[in-house]
Write a protein that binds this DNA or RNA. Structure first.
Lengths: 348, 348
DNA sequence: GTGAAAGCGCTAACAG
DNA sequence: CTGTTAGCGCTTTCAC
């Protein structure tokens, strides 16, 4: 009775069995054809393929994966609003495919925490999880690894159970500082990433390297965060200082962009008055009109290294902890320190 | 022989049957408990739940969905690098959940076209597809709708078979033009979205409204695109004009940001010298240091409206074509036209 | 080269 | 309230 009110849903999807029937072969044979594996004559192959086409057959990935022992799925958790994550996911799509896996995405948003995101991946029976910029503690990661092979990207895992591929944060900051110092900068500000992963390492690297140059007293440190707003707030604070820095090392590109925006609003010229260097070499920094000097993480390499370790771990090996070397990308937001012009800085 | 070399994968995942065995009940009963539906005594319920916990049982979504007639999955295609899409996906997560569905994501990247992305969704047996900023033609969309209920967001579908939820582009541009004209601007530039969805509507809306104000001759149109670079290039071109515009209507926020960057680089003050207005009210435009005037699309509303139509379509009804009204958000990048100061424009 | 049969993990219908 | 049975769509033996 009540069923009468339910509008009929569109006709049942066409299954492999339908195709097999129509082509006059067994489902098993049809399966062989659809998967393109050997075991069928060219004639049958063609016939089955054509009927499948005509019927508009679409294989059911769910059923495929269920029957197969392995799901062939790699899960990735990432944040929707982190351009660097976007770059990474883009590369992961290809790295994952190179190993014959499919990528399953699970976003972290303000309404959807990491726990939920990872849980979804597990319910999907992903064979491994890749966490971009995870905020889990080493303990949490260790616990998670008991349930699903896990890798973190852009940070260390703190446990041998969880693989990690990251760029050497200390080295990155060191390069940035060295670059600025070589340009004659001495009073340099580092805006940290707040509680973002990698922030502590970068901050420590900064003070250490400044001290190495005998510039410990001129090393300025201000708490920031991973967004433009964080950078903007921090630089606003800094502009109120008695002795303003001539260069800024921002936690990441987004943070640096916030800095750039504020400086330009206030008619502080970059890089003539103040140099700014970012971190990530996200496509943001590459945009011609921003053209920001930055520390590059090799996104494509990170993706391939991660997948190499992931597949190894799936095969039963222990995951690796890979630390990649960062690279300095000099663009247009860093230049000679203003005071460096007086003592006769070389100009081309 | 060769099998000897394959390292044993971690122990088999625990299945519902395992839990049932351990708890001494039938799989069916265990299923009832896990799903939290009625049909089990509190005692059994507790016992099963506890053993599930102990065994670290995680339901297999694949198997669940396979057995259920409905997959309970809604698929969404979007671009990783469009902040507006990020905003939308974020809202879709909640709207989809409100209707008891799960969201399945499929990204479009330079290496992964829309066709592939949608295909993945179909193989997942999604009950419906939501396409953000699709570039398919009406014909392609119509064809697709025969295979999966489809909705497009942020553009019209051009066919009654495909639902759409968009913001009235003409109205949006009209509001933007009116806003600028009311501020005394007359020579106004519109940077288009190139071949991006919605671009044509906005461009036409612009010229129409300028003509309405008797400003047809002062309406400048320059081809652009949906990224910062597009905006930057276009404004650079415009700055070479004999008669420069006093206001710019950009295709979207990212495009507008490119414009802002260039203007600030060139010491053109915003909004004193030139007003700039964006489109989307993406979180980008909201950032305090950018604080851009823009045309808002109600992202949350778009998400809910879409899901309302999607569920209706799944139930067998025809999808709806919804056009939402845009809203003007005045922030700090629009102000009185420079020439408007002479004839005694009111100042506060 | 081809088909029959079994079952992946789960849930829906039914029977006790 | 509980258990049995059947099967979702596919792939995988294993026969023929």
């Amino acid at each position: 009775m009540a069923t009468e009110f339910i509008r009929p849903r569109r006709q049942r999807r066409v299954t492999l069995a339908d195709v097999a029937d129509a082509a006059g072969v067994s489902p098993a044979l049809a399966s062989i054809v659809m998967r393109g594996v050997s075991g069928a004559s060219d004639a049958t192959r063609q016939r089955v393929q054509q009927t499948a086409e005509e019927l508009g057959y679409v294989p059911d990935r769910r059923a495929q994966k269920l029957r197969q022992i392995r799901s062939g799925l790699i899960g990735a958790c990432f944040e929707l609003h982190q351009p660097f994550h976007g770059d990474l996911v883009e590369q992961l799509y290809v790295a994952v495919a190179d190993h014959g896996f499919d990528l399953s995405l699970s976003c972290i948003t303000p309404n959807r925490d990491e726990r939920t995101a990872v849980g979804d991946l597990m319910r999907e029976r992903c064979e491994a999880a890749i966490l971009l910029g995870s905020r889990m503690t080493s303990e949490e990661l260790g616990a998670l690894s008991a349930r699903i092979p896990t890798h973190v990207i852009a940070r260390g895992s703190g446990t041998p159970l969880v693989g990690s591929v990251s760029t050497d944060d200390t080295a990155g900051i060191t390069i940035a500082v060295d670059h600025l110092v070589s340009l004659g900068h001495r009073r340099i500000l580092h805006i940290t990433g707040g509680d973002a992963p990698g922030s502590a390492e970068r901050a420590t690297g900064f003070t250490t390297r400044m001290a190495h140059h005998g510039l410990a007293d001129l090393a300025l440190l201000l708490p920031g965060g991973p967004t433009e707003t964080d950078g903007a707030q921090a630089i606003n604070e800094a502009l109120a200082f008695d002795h303003q820095p001539t260069a800024v090392v921002a936690f990441n590109d987004r943070c640096a962009i916030g800095v750039l925006e504020v400086l330009r609003q206030r008619d502080v010229h970059v890089p003539e008055d103040v140099s700014v260097i970012g971190y990530d070499d996200s496509r943001l920094s590459r945009l011609t009109h921003i053209s920001m000097s930055t520390i590059a993480q090799d996104v494509s390499r990170i993706a391939t290294e991660t997948m190499a370790s992931v597949t190894a771990q799936i095969a039963g090996n222990t995951p690796t902890q890979t630390v990649l070397a960062p690279r300095l990308i000099v663009r247009d937001t860093t230049g000679p320190a203003p005071s460096a012009n007086e003592p006769g800085a070389s100009r081309i």
